[in-house]
């Protein structure tokens, strides 16, 4: 009995100590970022162009570039992912050889390292398709990367739509296309939105896949074929390649983390609302 109690104490101690230590380190990270970066985040910082290789000035063009890359990524991955998710969740084909192969390959895709996506993007989009270092190439590369996340969440959304809707629509002689568009898609929309937001989070955080697909240029992009610099690349470049770039790198990191927190918070809030809605009688 006393040996058991001693072991209990030891395990409890280990758990508490490790959790406290880890929490402390994370608060240290977030705290030090905020402490040294927060003061520099002003409206002017967010809107003006970087000067002196980024040591001075703001991140205006970089914010715009980030949003453009994100826009291309979502514009491509959303319809593709939606189509794939509908096929996998709504049609009997999900169990077929084709369906299983697609699912398996998406699982592998989810684990592919981002630098490999970068290599692939530069070979396919920049070179084979002749897009060069551009917002398009970066966005397309990210689109490949977020597809598995998007598809998984959307499938979840369609699964949660009650099967009564499908039977009712079929019994009324409606085509599956109309049933999907008018009834199931609205019912699955929360899942789709959660996937969208998670995918956006992943795309925002990404750096390695963009290094040699969208490039480094920190000017305001004039078209989607221009090279452009994302927030994450800006942080990397300032801290590694520009001496004296740390303060602005830190401020940029604060902006990026704030954006991600907003995006993740949105996802959590939407999932919560969605779950609470599902509890109500259908």
């Amino acid at each position: 009995m006393s040996r058991g109690r001693a072991a209990d104490r030891l395990l409890a101690l280990a758990v508490w100590v490790s959790v406290l230590a880890v929490a402390a380190v994370f608060f240290w990270i977030l705290g030090s970022l905020l402490w040294s970066g927060m003061g520099r985040v002003t409206w002017a910082f967010l809107t003006t162009a970087p000067r002196d290789a980024g040591r001075a000035g703001g991140i205006g063009p970089i914010l715009v570039s980030t949003l453009l890359i994100l826009g291309v990524c979502m514009a491509v991955s959303l319809p593709l992912g939606l189509g794939a998710a509908v096929l996998l969740s709504e049609f009997a084909e999900a169990g077929s050889l084709f369906g299983r192969a697609v699912r398996r390959s998406l699982d592998v895709l989810a684990g592919v390292p981002s630098i490999v996506f970068g290599l692939f993007g530069t070979a396919l989009f920049c070179q084979a398709l002749g897009l060069g270092y551009s917002i398009f190439a970066g966005g397309l590369t990210l689109a490949c990367m977020v597809l598995p996340i998007l598809i998984r969440a959307t499938e979840e959304g369609f699964r949660s739509a009650p099967s009564e809707y499908r039977r009712a629509a079929a019994a009324l002689g409606m085509s599956r296309a109309s049933a999907l568009w008018h009834v199931l898609l609205p019912a699955a929309a929360p899942g789709l939105l959660v996937g969208l937001v998670l995918g956006m989070g992943r795309a925002l955080a990404e750096t390695a896949a963009l290094l040699f697909t969208s490039g480094y240029v920190d000017r305001m992009p004039e078209s989607l074929l221009d090279s452009a610099r994302a927030l994450s690349i800006h942080i990397y470049d300032l801290s590694m390649n520009v001496t004296g770039g740390d303060p602005n790198a830190c401020a940029t990191a604060v902006v990026l983390v704030a954006l991600l927190l907003a995006v993740n918070g949105l996802a959590a809030w939407m999932t919560g609302r969605w779950l609470s809605r599902r509890v109500l009688p259908a």
């Binding site: 319809p79 189509g83 794939a84 509908v86 084909e93 192969a101 697609v102 390959s105 592998v108």
Partner: peptide, 20 residues
């Protein structure tokens, strides 16, 4: 259309391998 979407999504891994 859906098969095309799923096929394309599933083919990305193969495309990556092929290009590498």
């Amino acid at each position: 259309v859906l098969r095309a979407c799923a096929g394309l999504s599933g083919a990305i891994v193969l495309l990556i391998a092929v290009f590498l």
